[in-house]
Design a protein around this nucleic acid. Sequence first.
DNA 1: CCCTAATCGAGACGGTACGTCCGGTCTTTGT
DNA 2: ACAAAGACCGGACGTACCGTCTCGATTAGGG
Lengths: 189, 189, 189, 189
Amino acid sequence: MERAILEGVIGLLEEGVPLAELSIERIARTAGVGKATIYRRWSGKEELFVDVIRAAEPPEPELPGTSMRDDLLVLLENLRQRGLASRSSALLHNVHAQMKSNPKIWAAYHENVIAPRRALVLDVLRRGQLNGELRPDVDVELANDLFVGPVLVRSVLRPDADLPAGLAEDIVDTVMAGLRPVSSTVSQH
Amino acid sequence: MERAILEGVIGLLEEGVPLAELSIERIARTAGVGKATIYRRWSGKEELFVDVIRAAEPPEPELPGTSMRDDLLVLLENLRQRGLASRSSALLHNVHAQMKSNPKIWAAYHENVIAPRRALVLDVLRRGQLNGELRPDVDVELANDLFVGPVLVRSVLRPDADLPAGLAEDIVDTVMAGLRPVSSTVSQH
Amino acid sequence: MERAILEGVIGLLEEGVPLAELSIERIARTAGVGKATIYRRWSGKEELFVDVIRAAEPPEPELPGTSMRDDLLVLLENLRQRGLASRSSALLHNVHAQMKSNPKIWAAYHENVIAPRRALVLDVLRRGQLNGELRPDVDVELANDLFVGPVLVRSVLRPDADLPAGLAEDIVDTVMAGLRPVSSTVSQH
Amino acid sequence: MERAILEGVIGLLEEGVPLAELSIERIARTAGVGKATIYRRWSGKEELFVDVIRAAEPPEPELPGTSMRDDLLVLLENLRQRGLASRSSALLHNVHAQMKSNPKIWAAYHENVIAPRRALVLDVLRRGQLNGELRPDVDVELANDLFVGPVLVRSVLRPDADLPAGLAEDIVDTVMAGLRPVSSTVSQH
DNA sequence: CCCTAATCGAGACGGTACGTCCGGTCTTTGT
DNA sequence: ACAAAGACCGGACGTACCGTCTCGATTAGGG
């Protein structure tokens, strides 16, 4: 049942139906379902969208584990191509935007989708500190932003721009270079 | 007239009225204005919001011009405190999110608000290349993202988080350090 | 506007649509009108029905005025043929029944439709007392019930039964005979 | 089981719950019963109400049998006080009204409740013809209406009015007086 | 200084969607 | 085995807005 509804929504979005025209009534009609069946499971459009995004979210990439740099490259490349940053998921972009209007829903999305992804990066960074690739006095939270921010900023502010192929490598190498010097200005939190 | 309407909207948002409850009807009622008077000036809620944001947008900061680093610090600090990144403008955040649902409006906002700000940063970076603070073979577009991305990513993904005071300085110094080495991996686009 | 809605409802009833299927939504659809336009005028189905009945109500008959007996004959005959008692208005019958479920609406109907009709009969009776056709010590309220009750009881309890042609005359003459004797048992209120 | 459901409904009505709020769902909840259990026994709300009325109907009065007049007085007095005409059964009144919207149900109610009561009156009248209290050429159907109509008309059209104590006696005596004269206008149908 | 024209507020209009409730059917669960 | 519990589809409820529209009333400036 839930499956049918979620896939109905994804289907509509893929057909190019604008997000603004996705009423609960239309979703129910499309899925061949009563409105109550939807309201029984979700409190409204926004909550439903959290699950739609979750259902359409690409799987987390396999990490090579050979080095922090390699792991970061895979993660950022994945983000560039298929994550929030991807042009192919322009639809998810809008759902994403819509959700931000509702703090509660956004919190749920943050907890279920964004936070795990962030935790993954933090793990990679901490492993890098253990094996010497990253100085141990660097604030991993800040480092995370330094790596992820430049990729995301383009997709958020200029969603239709093309993200060049070498972007992830450029970012990783530049930021790692900036974080390596002994005379660093970045101190533990 | 326009003034009264825009200020009515800003007033409502400041009173804590959720963006989702801002109907044209309510806006008209608040401003003591007929609905037609609003539709005569804007084609709908989103177009109106572009002007609301423009009216509430903080002025561009005065640049010291003493060095690229100083200019960047002022710009990022301004972004951290008063721009999109500011918690104080949580309301603008939502308007922002809402607008992204409408590509046409988003484009207008991008052109009128985001692009000028971006151009400012690019100018600063190019001046930095002229006076030797930034290697001339660095892609200024990428550099822009490296500087701005880490500030914005927090405000976009975790709007309620506190942005620490030294953040701008940490970012500027780290990224500049990463971009300075002779053996750079960053090449002109 | 009101006209179109009321006539739409009457049309539907005449087409044989069961009263229970007369939803506000359907009425609006039929009249080519928004639901709000109906709710702007009536608070609900029942209030609307009061006006439907009023619009479909046959006009009050011309009274000959030649005598109380003649007037009563016309009134009762009219009641038998075209009023509540008429088989042809089976539809009104149901609307009538429906209204009784709502005391407020019933009161409105009573005030606007039933009471004037009753007042008419009471007037005729009082004129009869003035010209000697009816003893002046008779309670006109009771007399009214004695004349009207027998006609109505059939239409209320057995709405599909045929009311014989001479019914009104039989009733008027019998009751007048019962009310005339000197040794009457009917005293002023 | 049936007992519990019917008594649940009567209980609700006695608590003053308006008839319009008596949904099958609520009845089931009150009786602690599944909806299916109700639909297994009755085809809908209306059929159920027939049994509710039957269960709440007052017993037929004991007839003295001393004379037609005495019997009629008892019957009409009973009607005035406890039957359809009674204010105390305002609730039944509404159920009654509701049923009229459904011809099938109304027919069932007519057959089970109204017709027997009518037959009783007709019996009394025919016994009166045999013992000389009522002229044998009078149409008993009409006579029935002449006696019963005046009592019912008040309760149907003005359910909140007080029916005065002497009403039954006034009606019986007046109508009997009207029916007695040799020069009667009432002929066998 | 008046008179045409534009503009205003107010709010009715046909619609769409909201979130809730109920009608009847059908399925699951437990006793 | 049967009954309670309740999910299911469908659809009406009454409300809120949408964007269009028609009203008078109020300005405004150009003749």
